[in-house]
Design a binder for these strands. Structure first.
Lengths: 212, 212
DNA sequence: CAAATCATGTAAAAGCCCTTTACATGAATG
DNA sequence: CATTCATGTAAAGGGCTTTTACATGATTTG
């Protein structure tokens, strides 16, 4: 009947799936108070275990954060891949969709996004996350490569650079105006529209005319 | 001889300028360990006062952070204004200089930058800082306004939008690849060059041809 | 100039969080 | 069924935060 263990309201000595429960509780707290806005002890209280319990699963609070960031990067990568959709229906549309997917992820999963980009993790954890981050970036980089291949050789910029420009603008918009609450500066348009316009102008500068 | 008080190695009962000393010590710690990388108590130890002393000057750790962010925004605004230089020697050159000044500030003053953009301050403090942030943004916005006035009416985009695009790209680059150490992802070019290229392409898209 | 007052710093204490260690429980294994 | 292993608890040490009562010395004022 039940996927895992017993889940009577009062659980027994063992929790059943403490890792998942910790992650879920932490995500809620991050979404509400930011990546620095919760304590390890607070999560144990929400979950209903003793303060020492999580140490069987995570070396410390940062390890929980890194675990969340890791999972976030994986979901992020999938979201970007889905948006790119192999370049269909056409390269330009798909490329813009990747940009929109970037912002959509930041908006819909602010807790993951914060864990990925705003939690200041140790060098060790940062290094371990680098691969996951690179995977996400690769989606954008390859999309850029496919896109610019439609340009004549002479006018073709490095795909890496194009990807970095779009990534930077998307991340800048997400950081400054994205999210759903507190830190967000007020601007007279939706972040998604701002990015869409910015990417269009940028691509125009590369030689993609908007009205061919 | 001395600007302020006695500064014999062993100071007396009163410090003389605890606020400044706290700010300086905090900046050093922020630069090294990030905005979440120091404790209030640690700063008091560095400065050499009791843990309760700072409470005469700052309500709490966040108030110190906000104070630093406030000062950071003021210096940031000045740096951008200096780069704009009234639009001289010409609008385009000056505009690009503003972008470079943005990155230069993030690179040279990582502690201020982190306090301004990466410290998650309370809503209350965030609101109080909004004005200081707006002042900085205004410099870029007015530069954008002057710049796009050279475009024919029909092709002239809103200055606000142009300013937001450039701000976002600069902030994205600074966040992802700027700074000088740990979090910085490795890329095959300097952040400054990446921004310069991005702004040039973007302005090209707006109708500023690079080779008139 | 001396006394009163005010700003600034200290000491001590309460409360919370982090983390480790020794022990308890119950699930899995043979 | 007995053993072993994974997982959770209790207790304790140490650090940080913040408050309160008190100490010091700079500043103001008669």
């Amino acid at each position: 009947m039940n996927g895992k263990k017993q889940t009577k309201s009062g659980r027994g000595y063992h929790h059943g799936d403490l890792v998942e429960a910790m992650v879920m509780a932490a995500l809620k707290l991050i979404a509400e108070f930011g990546p620095a806005g919760f304590t390890f002890a607070e999560v144990t209280r929400v979950v209903g275990v003793s303060p020492a319990a999580p140490y069987r699963h995570f070396r410390d609070r940062d390890a929980l954060m890194a675990f969340i960031a890791q999972r976030g990067f994986e979901r992020f990568t999938k979201a970007l891949e889905k948006a790119w959709n192999g370049g269909k229906p056409d390269r330009l549309t798909a490329f813009k969709a990747v940009g929109q997917a970037y912002l959509a992820f930041a908006r819909k999963e602010p807790a993951y996004y914060a864990a990925m980009f705003e939690a200041r993790l140790s060098d060790e954890h940062t290094r371990a996350l680098a691969l996951a981050g690179d995977n996400a970036f690769s989606v954008l980089r390859e999309a850029a490569e496919v896109l610019i291949n439609t340009l004549p050789d002479k006018k073709r910029p490095p795909a890496m650079m194009v990807a970095l420009h779009v990534w930077s603008m998307a991340h800048g918009i997400a950081s400054l105006f994205g999210g759903d609450g507190q830190n967000r500066k007020a601007i007279p348009m939706e972040p998604e529209d701002l990015l869409e316009a910015g990417v269009l102008i940028y691509l125009d500068g590369l030689g993609f005319s908007q009205t061919p």
